[in-house]
Amino acid sequence: MKRTIFNSQLLPWLLLAPQLAITFIFFLWPAAQAIRQSFLRQDAFGIRTTFVGFENFQRLLNSPEYLNSLQVTAVFAVSVTLLSMGFALILAVAVDRMIRSSRIYTTALVWPYAVAPAVAGILWWFIFNPTVGIMPYVLGQLGYNWNHISNPGDAMTLVVIASAWKQISYNFLFFLAGLQAIPNSLREAAAIDGAGPVRRFFDITFPLLSPTTFFLLVVNIVYAMFDTFAVIDTTTRGGPAQATNILVYKVYFDGFVGQNMGSSAAQSVFLMLIVTVLTVIQFRFIEKKVAY
């Protein structure tokens, strides 16, 4: 809280006006519309709209497609998070050992952050392309017949790899910062107490890294759930047979392609609830991070 304040009643509103105007017109109003529409249903010709209460929500929760999408999203988010964080943690621990070369390795590992999810999708789609891709060729030599266009498991693997790849840099940077914040004296003390490198990692480093790990868990789940739309859209488009149809993709698809406004709006409302919960967890946690 500031001690010194300027005495003006009008000026602060002028300063806030652009932000508030955009927030109202493009955030709050559409969100309110989504909530309103989630209680309405249009007839097949889009002429009559009727209030249907919670029917859209009920239908959604009874729809096998939506339940499938929930499940797909969970598998996808957990896989992306674990793969990306695991890989990033190993790299960060290795770079943390380096003294002179750490900068070069860091630069060589952070740039994928700048690659658009859509471009990441295209790149991996090309690599795994059944006719010209390099990976199906290699896998074919090993006796596996890769086809993400018809095989749901392959499709899920593809979108998980593409999404995780893009997020490695981010996780790596935060893990490295977390590792470098751990005082060396602690590890030295453990070494004097006779703990070898592996033991030190599990007894000292990893527990002290837990605030960073928890923070990244939340961020990665948010990323996998909401920022991977482009990866899905440039690779599998939710297919085959709904195998990669995550929630954000379904909202878009049902709204724009399926033109099912009531259902799409109800899905939006569900998603807002999920983001709200995740945001609250994140903010709760940040207060803790300060105290650690």
Binding site: F27, L28, W29, P30, A31, Q33, A34, Q37, F226, D227, F229, V248, V251, Y252, G255, F256, M261, S264, A265, S268, L271, M272, V275, T276, T279
Partner: peptide, 10 residues
């Protein structure tokens, strides 16, 4: 709490 992907249609 309102990323664009979530409220894309409205």
């Amino acid at each position: 709490m309102l990323p664009v992907e979530v409220r894309i249609v409205p």
